[in-house]
Amino acid sequence: MGYKDLSPLVRRSIWPLLGLAVLLLANVLIAPEFFSVEIKDGRLYGSLIDVMNRAAPVALLAIGMTLVIATGGIDLSVGSVMAIAGAVSAGLIVSGVDNIALVVGGGLLAGVAAGFVNGFLVGYFGIQPIVATLILMVAGRGIAQLINSGQIVTFHHDAFEFLGVGYFFGLPFPIVLVVIAFVLVQLLMRRTALGMFVEGVGANASASHHIGINDKLIKLMVYCVSGLCAALAGMIAAADIGGSDANNAGLWLELDAILAVVIGGASLMGGRFSVFLSIIGALIIQTLTITIILSGVPPKFNLLIKAAAIVIILLLQSPEFHRQVARLKKKRGPKHAS
């Protein structure tokens, strides 16, 4: 049975999973203790746990970004929305709000509001997603700075900090949050018809409109989900350092999130999506970073090696690349025979 006989789903999943496996294997070769997980005080420690923990913010962003990209859009504002949500939560804490539900709720509300603005511009005014979300990407940091009054706001709030540094059933809490977000989004998309409608809008917005699918509302919804995910990631980042830094929180993470989705095999033209594979993409990016550090290559090579590895993974997924390789093999074939 050849590659061509595999179902499209398997074919799409195989490369991201293989990429991750190869990277993990490389880590074991470099550092044999990579896979070892210890339990100390009922908590899990180890490089694997560390990778997942650090990948959590990008994984959360990637979950939302997957849906946005599936509709044929893109959300450049998620890094800035992280900063806004962190600033709102920090602002609530320092102004004396102690109720954790209010603090977290405030952050999430800010994320939904940001997503609503994006989704409204894209869905109801037909502004190109890259432009519509670029507005908030730039303005968002400004908003976060305003909320923080231009300062880095530090705070101490045990319940809130639990989001970033807490442990739950032995696992770092950010990992748990990613799992919860994944399960919720997966249920919403695949146990209802929403996922199919999202793919339909991305595959052909005009055909969706002709059937009577509310393509505008679907677009509004995916940007809101993306805003929510970004807010959650932003609060994790703020809780992790015990402060809100409007200038640096989530800086450039939108690019990592888009990359994670692309590594997960989604087309930027919209259509098919897999939230699971996007999370694998986020793990690949984080594992790569760790691999480079562990391998002892001087830090100045980091970015180049990362770029090279990602080019390889993307090439492996590209149908055109497969065709070219097949052609090369074919050309060589008869020569060997004769």
């Binding site: 018809a193 199919m196 409608f197 793919e199 339909g200 595959a203 052909n204 005009s206 055909a207 969706s208 409109h209 002709h210 059937i211 009577g212 699918i213 087309s267 259509g271 098919r272």
Partner: peptide
């Protein structure tokens, strides 16, 4: 092509889309 089919989606999904909506 422009207003009817959902190109990358399966025959099954293309068929049930209207009923589902």
């Amino acid at each position: 092509k422009r207003d009817g089919i959902f190109g990358p989606m399966s025959i099954r999904e293309n068929m049930i889309m209207a009923l589902q909506n």
